[in-house]
């Protein structure tokens, strides 16, 4: 009886987190290796202490003749062995860190745009679906998150995937993972962000690819009540904000935007910068700081008018320009089938 009681007690004490990503397995192996090192060195220290206390307890009959007070060889041994093991761990961990942290190069990756704000996670799929505090992804396909914060620093943490990255205001950060197991996994904010920090949590749903396709279809209207891809939503914003009155190809007041994404720009102060996401975001929110050479510094800042979600949509729209697949701005909303993506 006691035995079963004990068993049920321990059944209630979880000691190992579920692993559901490609990175989890090797991360756990490294973790266990360091656990082994910890046990090994702790055992040596505890063992030495207990042995010496027992043997050389004052009054014991142990031989105490000719004690030694230093031994260079011995001291080098217990400096260099831990050093070698430490460097081994460093190399292993650095290699794995690069694999996990370096931007994913896979063409196949699913792009998700994440905005953290006090105290919720806003996700958007390129095909337009929006989710709050939930993210649906297919199993077996890399997922790349492009993340930014609307206010303070947050941190996107999914223990089951062994991934985490801070979500910082003012700059885009990326994070990727490849789910290997269908299921429902905790999402936490790991960087303290104020009152409801511990309620800035959610779930990641990993689904079979066909279920995911179904989910995309069923949620075409998403949270925005508008059936539009991110680029289409961006196109609508472009119109609504009348960006075209300066930036349309025939206007010549502001720099034309067709094909601008990824090109090198020369700014009026002589700096040369690549027009990546961070640049485009700054050019929209705080254009005075990055005026392009040859243009007047007249664009008003949109910092107080746009949310980070909207900026994401505008950038997705700008990315489509000049690639021959411009969205006919006015009509997109009513077209069928565009959302298939």
């Amino acid at each position: 009886m006691t035995h079963t009681a004990m068993n049920s007690l321990f059944a209630n004490i979880p000691i190992w987190p579920e692993g559901a990503s490609k990175a989890a397995f090797e991360m756990d192996a490294l973790y266990l290796f360091i656990v082994g090192l910890t046990i090994f060195f702790s055992a040596i220290v505890f063992g030495l202490v207990l042995y010496f206390v027992g043997k050389y307890y004052a009054g014991s009959k142990a031989d105490r003749s000719n004690p030694s007070f230093h031994n260079l060889k011995l001291e080098l041994v217990w400096s260099l062995i831990p050093l070698a093991l430490g460097l081994f761990v460093f190399v292993w961990a650095a290699k794995l860190y690069v694999e996990v942290q370096a931007p994913i190069s896979s063409e196949n990756a699913l792009d998700i745009y994440v905005v953290g704000k006090q105290w919720m996670w806003q996700m958007q799929h390129p095909t337009g679906q929006r989710e709050n505090n939930e993210l649906h992804v297919p199993v077996g396909r890399p997922v790349k998150l492009t993340m930014i914060s609307q206010d303070v620093i947050h941190s996107f943490f999914v223990p089951a995937f062994r991934v985490k990255n801070d979500v910082v205001p003012g700059r885009y950060r990326t994070l990727w993972f490849e789910p290997t197991k269908v299921g429902k996994y905790h999402l936490f904010c790991a960087e303290y962000c104020g009152t409801k920090h511990s309620e800035m949590v959610g779930w990641i749903y990993v689904m079979e690819p066909e279920d995911y396709e179904m989910w995309l279809k069923d949620n075409q209207w998403g949270m925005g009540n508008e059936k539009a891809t991110m680029a289409e939503a961006g196109a609508a914003l472009y119109q609504q904000l009348q960006c075209g009155s300066c930036h349309d190809p025939n206007q010549r007041i502001g720099p034309p935007l067709a094909g601008v994404y990824g090109t090198t720009r020369t700014l009026s102060d002589g700096r040369r910068v690549i027009a990546d996401r961070d640049y485009l975001r700054q050019a929209i929110l705080d254009p005075q700081a990055v005026t392009v050479s040859g243009y007047e510094n007249i664009m008003p800042p949109f910092r107080s008018q746009l949310t980070e979600v909207e900026v994401n949509q505008l950038i997705e729209y700008i990315k489509t320009l000049g690639k021959g697949n411009e969205l006919p701005v006015a009509e997109t909303k009513n077209e069928e089938g565009v959302n298939k993506g």
């Binding site: 090797e26 991360m27 490294l30 973790y31 360091i34 090192l37 910890t38 060195f41 702790s42 220290v45 505890f46 202490v49 206390v53 430490g86 761990v89 460093f90 292993w92 961990a93 650095a94 290699k95 794995l96 860190y97 996990v100 942290q101 941190s155 943490f157 223990p159 062994r162 991934v163 985490k164 990255n165 790991a190 960087e191 303290y192």
Partner: peptide, 28 residues
Amino acid sequence: LAFMGLFTIGGLTGLFLSAMAVDIHLHD
């Protein structure tokens, strides 16, 4: 003696956090 034992564990668990990949999971 308590210091030696506890600091040993405290120090060795620092190794988990200095190992960059493991720190991704353990940070915060």
